[in-house]
Every structure is written in structure tokens, then in C-alpha cells.
Computed example of a mutant assay.
Amino acid sequence: MKRLRRGFTLVEVLIALVLLSLLMLVLAGALRALGGVEERVEQRITAADDERAAVRLLGDVLGRVSARRFPLRQAGGPAEAPFFEATPNALSWIGIMPARFGAGGRHYCRLAVEPGPGGGRLVLRYAPWTGAPTFADWDHAQSQVIVAPVQQLSLRYQDPASGQWSAVWPPPGVPFNALPSTLLPGAVDIQVEGPEPSWPPLTVVVVATRSSDPSAATGSFGGGRL
């Protein structure tokens, strides 16, 4: 009877407390891991939504490009050409901004990486079209951050006649009379390095607006992605 009424010893209590503490640590670690997984899933969902919105915006703006020609003062080139300044890391053109941005209609546009807090940012700048053949005051133009942070933007332009890609437009060595009547590339390949999760390569078909395309006869035109 004395042995049955005996309580726990101090050593047994300490062992029980240690085991309980270990169990609590394991449960706390599991809860933290579960919270981290949930946060990463939410980040990936948000990043995927941002990517879809950015792809849609680029497809809309680059998918309708003005082919209206302006006089040039460049020796060895055509007398007139559209405003389409294409380099490996930046692109400037006259396009149609979607009305959902409160800036519908024809605008000067530029896509490039700009410095910003925490690193580079892929920025679309736009300013209302004034009829001038070029635009250079990009610092005062409105801007829309496409994605951040970004390390590099790589652009390529497709010659619709040959299907070949070039880092600049017009392609070096291709005579102007061999280019399409719009003097625009058939598509633009966009590769963005830096965002997480990483973007897949994006190809946007370039379609001249009907009112500016010298070869357009009937029908309407819109942008798209390959």
C-alpha cells in the first residue's frame, strides 16, 4: 500500500518535462515549416498573376504598332520609316495603350530596364502621341512597372521574310527593299532575367495598325503571342 501511494520522483518529473519540451519544439517547428510553405505558395500565386497581367499588357501594347512613316535624315536608308527604335536591351515605338490604364489611344512607348529600389525594374513608359516623328523625354513620361527586381532584358526581332532573329532592327546586312512594307519586324522575343519564379521566353507578334499599314486593305488587326 505504501508503494501504491508513492508519487513521482524528481527525476521522473524532470524527464517528463524534457520530453514535453521536445514535443513542443517539434510541433512548433512543424507549424513554422507549414507557415513557410503557405507563404511561398502565396508568393508563387501572386507572381504568376503578375506575370499573366504583364504578358497581357505587353501583348496588347506591342501587338498594335503604328507603321506611320516619318521623314528620315539617315544616309543609306529609306526616305521615310516608322518610329521603331529597336536595340538588344530597349525598344521604343508608337503603339496603342489599352483604355484600362486611363491612357487609351496612340502613345509613344518604351520598354527598358531602369534602376530602382532593390535592383532593376522592367518599366513601360508612355506619353501621348503628338505627331512628332520621335520622342526622347522619357524621364517625364508616365510609367508602369512590369516586374521587379530584374537583372537584364534581352530583345530579339524576327525578319518575317526569312524567319531569322536579330538583336537589332532592321537586321544588319538586309536591304530595306527586302523588308516588309511596314518596315516592322514580324515578332519581338522578350527574355527577362531576374524575377522569381523566372519568366519563360515571351514572343509577341507585331501587327501594324490598319490605318498606318500601307499594305492593309480590309479587316481589323490585333496583337497576339506565339
Rank of each mutant, 00 (worst) to 15 (best):
Q151V: 11
D159Y: 08
V150N: 06
I96N: 07
M1E: 11
L23K: 03
E38W: 13
N89L: 06
A30V: 03
A75Y: 06
D159K: 00
L22S: 13
Q142P: 02
V174C: 13
R210C: 00
G120E: 00
Q191E: 13
P82T: 00
A167V: 02
I146N: 09
Q191A: 11
L184C: 02
M97S: 06
L34R: 14
S220L: 04
S198D: 12
V188E: 05
G59A: 11
A99P: 07
S162M: 02
G173W: 13
A187F: 04
D159T: 01
G105D: 11
S162V: 09
R225A: 07
S220I: 00
I15T: 13
P160C: 00
A112N: 00
V41R: 15
L14Y: 01
P98S: 11
V174H: 14
F70T: 08
S92K: 05
G223W: 04
R125H: 07
Q74M: 10
V188Q: 06
A53Q: 14
A67M: 02
R32D: 04
K2G: 14
A28S: 15
A99N: 09
R69L: 03
P98T: 01
G104M: 04
P172V: 12
R3Q: 05
P160W: 05
R32E: 14
A161K: 09
S66V: 06
N89W: 10
P160G: 05
H140R: 15
